[in-house]
């Protein structure tokens, strides 16, 4: 994968491995259920102002 912005890794500057696949999987794993919970809750909240 293409290296992006460098960050300090200890005493030397090392390019950051973006690890796109792991990043997308990780954020989907936590983001998808959270989105499900928020949308389900908001659908109930809608009744408040009907």
């Amino acid at each position: 994968m293409r290296a992006q912005q460098p960050e300090s890794g200890g005493t030397t500057d090392v390019p950051v491995n973006p690890a796109v696949g792991r990043l997308v999987f990780g954020w989907l794993l936590v983001g998808a259920p959270l989105a499900y919970g928020v949308i389900t809750t908001l659908s109930r909240v809608g009744q408040l102002f009907q």
């Binding site: 890794g9 200890g10 090392v14 950051v16 690890a19 990043l23 990780g26 794993l29 936590v30």
Partner: peptide, 18 residues
């Protein structure tokens, strides 16, 4: 390891807290 992407850490933490 050197060059580790720190944005991989919040999902790991969220997996526990969720």
């Amino acid at each position: 390891p050197p060059g580790f992407n720190r944005w991989l850490i919040p999902p790991a933490a969220l997996a526990v807290h969720l």
